[in-house]
Design a binder for these strands. Sequence first.
DNA 1: CGACATGTTGAACCTCATCAACCGACGTGG
DNA 2: CCACGTCGGTTGATGAGGTTCAACATGTCG
Lengths: 243, 243
Amino acid sequence: MLEIAGDFARTTCAQCAIRHRAVCGALSNEELMALTRLGRFRDFEPGDVILADQEPIDFFANIVSGVVKLEKTSADGRQQIVGLLFSSDFLGRAYAHENPYFAQATTKVKLCTFSNSAFEKLLISNPDLERRMFINTLNELDACREWMFLLGRKNAREKVATFLHMIAKRQPLIGCGAHQSPGTACFELPLTRADIADFLGLTIETVSRQLTILKKEGAISILKGREIGVPDLERLHAIADPE
Amino acid sequence: MLEIAGDFARTTCAQCAIRHRAVCGALSNEELMALTRLGRFRDFEPGDVILADQEPIDFFANIVSGVVKLEKTSADGRQQIVGLLFSSDFLGRAYAHENPYFAQATTKVKLCTFSNSAFEKLLISNPDLERRMFINTLNELDACREWMFLLGRKNAREKVATFLHMIAKRQPLIGCGAHQSPGTACFELPLTRADIADFLGLTIETVSRQLTILKKEGAISILKGREIGVPDLERLHAIADPE
DNA sequence: CGACATGTTGAACCTCATCAACCGACGTGG
DNA sequence: CCACGTCGGTTGATGAGGTTCAACATGTCG
C-alpha cells in the first residue's frame, strides 16, 4: 500500500505517503511542485550500501519506507550503529562535503532522493524548511543522547528490552493476527541479530541469550525468528527502565 | 584574562572574547547592539546547577568560560554525561519547553545569558543566526555519535585515552612550564574522577586505575591530581584508536 | 543435495564492577 | 591548635556479567 502511495508521489509530492511527516511538510504547494521535479525514487535491497562514509555527498533523501542504519567502523573492524532511520526520516548531512557515516539498508528501502545542490538551494531560500530540518536534528540529538545512556549505563538485559520496546513503538505494524489490544504489540524486527548487537554495543551471542531469557520469562514471544510478540508493553518497559 | 574580556563584553558584545566563535558570530553590528541589551552575565561555581531537567526553560546562554556538563539520570540513580560544553558553546534547547537534561558547572563558569523568548524572536527574524545554530547542532550530533562508538565499543583503556586526548585538543592551555613543543600537551582536567567515569560509562575506580597504568607506561604524567602532561599526543592517540 | 548465512547454546576466560580499606587535603568547631 | 568529618582520589581482593571460541541447529538458494 505504501508502494501505491509511492507511485502517486512519483508524479506529485502533494500525495506522497510521508508528505506531512517528512521535512517536506514545511513546503508550500508551489514549492512542492518544484520538489516533485527534483525528487527521484530509488529502491534498495537489504544490505545495499546507500552512502559510503568519507565519500563526497551526492544526494539527500527522505525515507519513504524501510529502515536504514548509520554505522561507524573503526580501523580494527569494530562496528557501532549510531542511528536508525525509519519511514519519513531524513537521510543526509546538510552543510558538509563528506558523509560522516556509512548508511546501509537493513530492509527493503524506498528513498525519495534529491540532488544535494538543488536541495541546499531550496534550503537557503526557505527558512521554514530549514527550521524543520533544524528541529529534526534537535530531535535526533535527543535520541542520540538517550542512546548514550543506554550504551554507557544499561546492562544487556535492559539494552535488549529497550530496543524491543523502541521498535514496538516505532512500528505499530502489520497485525500478526487481527487487531491488537492496546498495551500489546507484534512486529517484525527490521535488523539481524548482528545489527542489533552493533546497535546495543553487545555481541550476537549476548543478544540471542537475552532474547531467549525474555522469551522464557514470558515477557516476549518469538514467533518465527524475527517476528516478535509483546503481550504487555508496560512490563517490557519496566524491564528496560527498572525501578 | 578571559575575565577582562568578559567585562568588556558586559557593555558591548562587539568586543566579547567569544564573539566570533559563538553563534553570535552570525549577527550584524546592529543586531549585536540589540543582543548586548539582552545579554546578562552570570557566574557559577563548580557543582552549581545551571539547568534542572524536566523544568521549564528560562534562558539560553553562551559559555564565556568554564566547562558545563549535560547529564542524564535514571530512576534508580545511574548517571551518564551526555555532553560537555566548553567556551563559546551554546547552552539550551531551542524550540522546546522543557530542558531535556540536567546542566551543571564542573569548573567556575561564566555564562552570557538571554531570555529565551527574546532569543527565539531574534532567531525567527534572523535566518543566518538560525543556520549557525543549526550547523552547531549538526556538529554536536556528530560528536555525540562519535561518543556512541566509544561507549559501545571501546574498552576502559581506550576510553580514558580518548578522553584525555579530547581534552588535550580542546584546552591548548595554560603552559605548565614555558611554551610546549608541538605534539605535547599540558592541561588541567576540568572534571573530577566521578565526572570522568560518568562521561565514559565506567566507575571511578576503573578510571583511576587506567590513569595509573597510563602513567606507569609513560604515556602521560600526573603532576598534581588534575594536572596532566602528555609527552606525545600521537602516542596517546594510538592508544585511543588502536590499529 | 551441499554451501552459506543466520541464529542458538555451551564452556572457559577476562574485563570491569563491587566492596572495602586507606591516603592526603581541607575546613570546622571544640 | 588539634581532633574530626568530609571530599576526592588510589589501591586491593573478589566475583558477576559479557566476550570469546566452538559446536550445532535451522533456513534458504543455487
